[in-house]
Design a protein around this nucleic acid. Structure first.
Length: 155
DNA sequence: GCCAACGTTGGC
DNA sequence: GCCAACGTTGGC
């Protein structure tokens, strides 16, 4: 039994293309600084699948699929004063922030835009589409996953 | 524990 | 660039 997720990223910071070009096509998902997102991340298991979503920049869309290859472990950037994700309130006795590793799986033949998703039947309750929703790590139901995958071929 | 002030996200 | 929605902080 695997679970499904959606990860948001600003392509100017880290794009799906960056993931594809990364060593082993794998990256650690650093910088999550929201408790709800962190809590979801801590439940992600090896083998779970993830939609990679580009926010902020058009086309705002789900662009491909990645796989969880390493479960949560401490995000070192929280301890690095020079890093933009530095958190002075975190310490080794009480680690606040964690990350996972994901690996490129496949990409859709064309991005599935937010506008399109809004018009698809069966996705009305998707977390991504809720008003004011801004969770950067969010669960996706299997039914929603299957509907979205049926919209495009993968490469 | 309340809540005002402030900061961030992210679609538009 | 705007701003609504949401999250966090900190004084009381």
């Amino acid at each position: 039994m695997i679970n499904y997720w959606l990860l948001k990223s600003e392509p100017d910071t880290f794009s799906f293309e960056d993931l594809k070009k990364a060593k082993n096509q794998t990256t650690h998902w650093e910088g999550v600084r929201n408790y709800q997102a962190r809590n979801f991340m801590k439940t992600m298991k090896k083998g779970d699948l993830v939609f990679f979503y580009h926010s902020m920049k058009k086309p705002i869309s789900i662009i491909g699929i990645a796989k969880v290859v390493k479960e949560f472990y401490p995000d070192q950037t929280q301890f690095d004063e020079t890093n933009k994700y530095y958190d002075p309130k975190s310490n080794l006795d009480n680690i606040r922030w964690f990350m996972i590793d994901i690996k490129y799986q496949t990409e859709f033949s064309a991005p599935i835009t937010l506008d399109e998703l809004k018009s698809v039947e069966g996705l009305e309750e998707m977390v991504l589409l809720q008003k004011g929703s801004r969770l950067s790590v969010q669960p996706v139901r299997k039914e929603e996953w299957d509907i979205i995958c049926s919209l495009r071929k993968t490469k």
